[in-house]
């Protein structure tokens, strides 16, 4: 592991990170109302619905559980589909665990908050302190908003209507794109992103939902393992190959 230098964040940077985190939290949390309404409509109780948002806490997997049950599918199929969609959280954790550096109870809490949004906001920051702040604030904001809106949806039904009418699905995709954007200046990351998009889109019509995105992880494996990095190009070493430089893009 590299010993990344810890710089305290300036108040301006802190505010910028928190603003990003909270806006992602609000946009995502609002979707909880759809989940709550759909879950109760699929036959689960309000308590079962709330337990899913508290303990499962991963939007795609939760929609999969209630979707399969609502369509008359069995519990085993619901658990299998949900778990398949949850694989990517485990893959995120390989990277988030590196910048969070958590132990004990904080590690248990960080694991529960490891989802698309918290990973994306953490990844979107340059400094280690900002990565940590972004991860935690986003995770807690989404957790709070998602659970409150789940309860509202379960009790009131879809009172606000389809979040898509407000463009919230596009807001989520745009937020992920904006958070990835600074990373894509690195050649490796840009190649990985393009490969991943191609894999996911080619696989989507033929594989079950959720599988194409996991398959796209192969892009990181191929680019990460096969291309020689700057640190390995010993024969043509340059001044920027200084030892101890952070190998993370």
């Amino acid at each position: 592991m590299t010993a990344a230098v810890e710089h305290p964040l300036t108040p301006d940077r802190r505010r910028a990170v928190v603003r990003q985190a909270l806006s992602v939290g609000v946009a995502t949390g609002a979707y909880g109302i759809s989940f709550g309404a759909l879950s109760v409509a699929s036959g689960l109780t309000v308590l079962q619905t709330q337990v899913l948002s508290l303990l499962l806490f991963s939007g795609g997997s939760q929609f999969a559980v209630v979707g399969v049950l609502g369509a008359g599918g069995g519990g085993a199929a619901a658990v299998a589909t949900s778990t398949l969609l949850g694989v990517r959280n485990g893959l995120y954790a390989l990277q988030t665990s590196r910048f969070l550096g958590v132990r004990g109870v904080r590690r248990l809490a960080a694991a529960q908050l490891t989802i698309d949004e918290s990973t994306a906001v953490g990844l979107g920051q340059e400094e280690r302190a900002a990565q940590r702040l972004g991860f935690w604030v986003t995770g807690l904001a989404v957790f709070t908003g998602w659970n409150l809106m789940t309860l509202a949806g379960a009790l009131l039904g879809n009172a606000l209507g389809d979040p898509r009418a407000y463009g919230l699905d596009a807001a989520a995709a745009a937020a992920f794109a904006a958070l990835l954007w600074p990373r894509l200046r690195s050649g490796d990351a840009a190649v990985t992103a393009v490969l991943a998009v191609v894999v996911a889109l080619v696989a989507s019509p033929v594989l079950p939902a959720g599988v194409p995105v996991i398959l796209a992880a192969a892009a990181a494996v191929v680019v990460g393992l096969r291309r020689p990095g700057r640190h390995e190009s010993a024969p043509t070493a340059h001044a920027d190959d200084r030892p101890g430089a952070d190998p993370l893009p």
Binding site: R88, L91, Y92, L94, Q95, T96, R98, D116, T119, A120, L123, A173, F176, A177, L179, L180, R183, D188, A189, T192, A193, V194, L195, A196, V197, V199, A200, L201, S204, P212, V213, I214, A216, A217, A218, A219, A220, V221, V223, G224, L225, G229, P247, L248, P249
Partner: peptide
């Protein structure tokens, strides 16, 4: 580097999907 690129691959694919 592979671990650092994993979230890039997964999130890019997610946005596309």
């Amino acid at each position: 580097r592979m671990i650092a690129l994993l979230p890039v691959a997964l999130l890019s694919a997610l946005v596309a999907v």
